[in-house]
């Protein structure tokens, strides 16, 4: 192994890793709002709105992320959707994780005991207040881990945006290999960096989870 080379390219890979972190965190952030929107649409009485949300979720879940990325980046301009590579990565990431996240959020809301809503309603709370003060805080602790798993998948999938030439960790690694012909060293380094990022995400999820359930582990 060429250790000197590894030391030399590390700063370049770290810079690229920041792009990975940046794209992923923005996609997760906006994805959360997409997810909330999808959950909200599914509460509508007007069936076509619910169908739209269900249909959207089915399409996203039924197609590879890679294809979604290519479709938006290369197919988008034909319908006037021209996005720069990074924006496209964030955009597709957000709309992809949003679909999965909406299912996690909906599932956790549904698994809060119905007695909780009944108790709140019996005190005179309205539907919205019941949701905000009683159901959502409890659903939050249930959804943290499943949303966390999705976030980890998204970080890993972010390597796919290299195909639309975003200079993130994987793309940078490939570029460096092109000039150094040292795939073992460079891919090992980039893999290590993914591990650091992903374990950091897991740590944050675990902390958030423990905080959310502290009422059961006083």
């Amino acid at each position: 192994m060429d250790v000197d080379l590894m030391v030399e390219v590390t700063p370049l890979l770290i810079r690229a890793a920041w792009v990975t972190i940046d794209i992923s965190s923005r996609a997760i952030f906006f994805g959360f709002f997409v997810a909330c929107g999808l959950v909200f649409l599914q509460t509508f009485r007007f069936a076509p709105i619910r169908w739209f949300a269900r249909g959207y979720i089915s399409v996203i879940r039924g197609t590879p992320y890679f294809v979604q990325l290519l479709l938006v980046f290369y197919g988008g301009p034909s319908i006037g959707l021209r996005l720069d590579p990074i924006t496209c990565g964030v955009f597709v990431g957000a709309f992809n994780i949003g679909a999965y996240m909406s299912e996690a959020i909906r599932g956790s809301i549904e698994s809060v005991d119905s007695g909780q809503s009944e108790a709140a309603r019996s005190l005179g709370f309205g539907k919205v207040q019941t949701m905000v003060s009683i159901v959502l805080p409890q659903a939050a602790s249930l959804m943290i881990r499943s949303v966390g798993v999705l976030a980890i998948v998204l970080v890993k999938n972010s390597s796919l945006v290299s195909i639309i030439s975003v200079v993130e960790l994987t793309y940078q690694a490939q570029r460096l290999i092109g000039s150094t012909y040292k795939p073992l060293e460079i891919f090992t380094l980039s893999a290590l960096m993914y591990i650091v990022i992903i374990y950091a995400v897991m740590g944050i999820i675990e902390l958030a989870y423990r905080r959310a359930i502290r009422y059961t582990t006083q």
């Binding site: 005991d113 007695g115 909780q116 009944e118 108790a119 709140a120 019996s122 009683i134 805080p137 409890q138 602790s141 009422y215 059961t216």
Partner: peptide, 9 residues
């Protein structure tokens, strides 16, 4: 209620 339904959080 029979099952109390206190708000656990």
């Amino acid at each position: 209620f029979q099952h109390f339904n206190l708000f656990p959080h």
